[in-house]
C-alpha cells in the first residue's frame, strides 16, 4: 500500500497564547511546537496498515523549514518518506493549503491519504474534505474505526449521539479522530533513524488567499465567580442562585 499522511505543526496544547503586535495572528514567541494530536492518529493508522499489508508511508507538510522537527516527529514514529511543501508561513486560507496539498498528492498515486480531523490551532476542520474534492476522491471524516477488505473500506465516523457507518473504496481520503487507534511512542531508535531520512522539498505556486484574518483577540474575560459554600450544605443556595439569579434551571 502506498499511503500519504498530511501533518501539521501546531502549538503545544499547554500554550497560553499571546497576540502578535500586528494584531492579526498569534505570537510565535516562546511557543513550543508539536505534531497536531489528531495527525498522530493518522500516522499511526497508516503505519499499522503498511506493517500488515506492506508498502510505505509518506508524510507531507506545508510550511516553512521551521516545521521540519514536526515532520521528523512523524518519521520517528516509523514513516519512510517525507515531503515539505515550501511556504513562508502557514496560509490563513484553508483553500490555499488544500489546493497546494492536492497538487502534490496528485503526483503520488496513493491508495489512501490520511489527515487529522482538525488542526488544533486554527480548528478549521476542512482541509481534508477540500483535498478530497480537489482530487475527486471518496472521503470520510472524523473516523474512529477503519476496516479494509480488498479495495473496499468500511469506516465509522463520529456524529452527534452516535456513529455513522460508511462504505467507500480506495483510493480514498480519511480524516482521523481520537479513538481510531493508540499512537505509538517515538522510540530512541526511531528518532535516530528519522534523522537520516532526507526531507524532499517541493515548490508549488500557492493560490492567492480569499480569507483574511482581520483581528485576533482574547475572548471576553470571565468575571471570577463566587464560592457558594462548602459541601452538601451549600446545595440549596446553589440551586436558588441557578434558578433565580442565573435563570438557567
Amino acid at each position: 500500500m502506498n499511503i500519504a499522511v498530511c501533518v501539521k505543526q501546531v502549538p503545544d496544547t499547554e500554550t497560553r497564547p499571546k497576540i502578535d503586535p500586528s494584531g492579526k495572528k498569534m505570537s510565535e514567541e516562546g511557543v513550543k511546537w508539536i505534531l497536531n494530536p489528531y495527525d498522530e492518529f493518522a500516522v499511526e493508522e497508516a503505519l499499522q496498515l503498511v506493517e500488515k499489508n506492506g508498502g510505505e508511508v509518506t508524510v507531507i507538510s506545508l510550511g516553512p523549514a521551521a516545521v521540519e522537527p514536526t515532520i521528523r516527529a512523524a518519521l520517528a514514529m516509523g514513516a519512510q518518506k517525507a515531503i515539505r511543501i515550501e511556504a513562508e508561513e502557514n496560509p490563513a486560507d484553508p483553500l490555499v493549503t488544500a489546493k497546494a496539498l492536492a497538487e502534490v498528492l496528485k503526483q503520488g498515486n496513493y491508495d489512501l491519504i490520511f489527515f487529522g480531523k482538525q488542526a488544533i490551532d486554527d480548528d478549521y476542520a476542512q482541509v481534508p474534505q477540500m483535498v478530497a474534492t480537489a482530487l475527486d476522491l471518496p472521503c470520510a471524516t472524523v473516523v474512529v474505526k477503519l476496516d479494509i477488505e480488498g479495495e473496499k473500506l468500511t469506516v465509522e465516523r463520529e456524529i452527534e449521539g452516535g456513529k455513522e457507518k460508511l462504505s467507500l473504496s480506495m483510493p480514498a481520503v480519511i480524516s482521523a479522530q481520537k479513538g481510531l487507534n493508540e499512537p505509538r511512542y517515538r522510540s530512541l531508535k526511531g528518532i535516530m533513524k528519522a534523522k537520516k531520512i532526507p526531507i524532499e522539498t517541493v515548490q508549488v505556486e500557492l493560490a492567492s488567499g480569499q480569507l483574511e484574518i482581520e483581528k485576533v483577540k482574547f475572548p471576553p474575560e470571565k468575571q471570577p465567580g463566587k464560592i457558594v459554600g462548602k459541601g452538601a450544605d451549600a446545595v440549596p443556595e446553589l440551586v436558588r442562585l441557578l434558578h433565580e439569579e442565573a435563570k438557567v434551571i
Binding site: V127, T133, L211
Partner: peptide, 23 residues
C-alpha cells in the same frame, strides 16, 4: 456546525472556489 455541516460544507466550498468560515 454539526458533524454533517462541518463534513459537507468544505466540499461545497471547494466546488465554489471559496473558503469556508467554520464554526
Amino acid at each position: 456546525a454539526t458533524a454533517l455541516g462541518k463534513d459537507v460544507l468544505p466540499r461545497t466550498a471547494f466546488l465554489l472556489n471559496s473558503p469556508l468560515v467554520q464554526d
